Simulated scan of single mutants.
Amino acid sequence: MALINNAGGSLTSAVLLTLLAWGVRWLRAELNRKRQEDEKGRVASRRSLGRFSARLSPVALRMLVETGPYPHLVISVRSAGSHDALPAELRGALRLPESKVAAVLGSASAWAEAFQGVPYPPPHFMLVFVGDREEEEVRAAAAAASCGFQRTMVLEGGLQALGGGSTQLPQPQADLHFIGRDALAVLLGMAPEVLHVPPVTLVDVRRSDERALYGAIKGAAHIPVDQLASALALPPEQFFVQYSFAKPAPDDLVVFSCRTNTRAGWAAQVARDAGLQRCLVLRQGVYGWRLDPAVKPYRGYRLQDVPPEAEPFSVEPLNAEAGRRELASLHIPVM
């Protein structure tokens, strides 16, 4: 049979090329659609886990339990078939099967029936879910978020990431590094005789009500400690929109402060887990700042308590020389 030709070659070749081009376009469209669906899924998943949900390293979880920087409950959602004991630091965790999380957290009466004597957690509490696998923790966290709990945390990698039969959560590999009041004041430009200081980001991790009632160190950015882990997981553009300052880079010098130093210490660990390598904690906290009459010392109080009166104090002079010596010991050059 004679082959039909056209000016560009055989008709069969033209059809094949057309089909191939169509196939490439279709494949590209499908890949693009899949990427968009995956991105929507990630956004939806994040929303379903709560606005301030995040993953906690085993070290951060240990510090949370041992130092109590924020009101929290640890809930074990391990299946009944799990035979390994929980790490020692988590022996006080409440036990709640993943399948019952929504029902129990959905009403105070169901909670009271499941956990007699344990008060029903208020919405601002941090709920930390631990399970053998991170996947079951995430499902439990999503169920809690559906009940209105926005601070749902999961243990990074689940308990299986610690190794079978692990009896303890790991300790921090290095001690926290502190910075004193005078040294921070020098970094913040409060010593006029010091002409050059490296850039520093001071992050106040107290609640908004504390800052409003008792003042904040001039120049301090603000991220409440319960939001820090989720904040550091944001892309830089979204971080800036939400917190009004640039997201710190891994090599940036960052100082965390709170009323004393408990919350700031945990914040420094969370930040190190997120990749920030130069984190310091204000040793005296704002309670011991006393360099500014607008920053008042006060007794600690819970969110639901009546705020205490600020304590009387006298403004103290800055010891710039002591600050410079401390900065030298921290290998932070000033001129």
Rank of each mutant, 00 (worst) to 15 (best):
K40E: 15
D226L: 03
E210D: 10
R283L: 12
E37R: 15
E137Y: 09
I217F: 11
V241Y: 02
R151P: 02
R263K: 14
L213N: 11
A21I: 10
V197P: 03
D251W: 10
A185N: 01
G81V: 04
A322K: 10
P297H: 05
V104A: 04
A246N: 00
G68F: 03
A233P: 03
R42C: 09
R324C: 12
G158E: 13
P121G: 10
I223V: 15
D175H: 11
L213V: 09
P236Q: 08
R55P: 01
P192L: 08
Q36N: 02
R42F: 06
L155M: 06
A85H: 03
L188N: 02
S329C: 01
Y298A: 02
K247D: 04
D305K: 07
A144R: 02
Y287E: 08
A328G: 08
Q36Y: 05
L90H: 09
G23W: 12
Q227S: 06
A54D: 12
G164T: 14
R263P: 07
E89N: 03
R325Q: 15
S329P: 01
P333W: 06
P192Q: 01
G164D: 09
D252G: 03
Y301P: 06
N261A: 08
T201P: 00
A183N: 13
A212V: 08
Q173D: 10
F52C: 05
L19G: 11
V286T: 13
A108K: 10
L253E: 03
I223Y: 05
R324E: 14
V118M: 01
L155S: 09
S99T: 15
P58G: 01
S13Q: 11
E113S: 15
L94T: 05
E210K: 00
R95D: 05
P69Y: 01
H331S: 15
A112F: 01
V334L: 05
W266T: 00
Y298N: 07
H331V: 12
F178N: 04
D252F: 00
T262A: 02
L280Y: 14
E237K: 09
L327A: 12
E311A: 04
S48N: 13
A322S: 15
A2L: 11
E37P: 00
A191C: 14
H177A: 13
S53R: 01
V24S: 02
M63G: 03
V200C: 12
H177K: 14
L86G: 01
G148P: 11
S10G: 12
E321F: 05
A264W: 05
I332C: 03
E137Q: 13
S99V: 12
E311F: 05
R28V: 08
L187M: 06
P308T: 11
T262P: 00
A80V: 09
L318Y: 07
F256D: 04
R95N: 07
I223T: 04
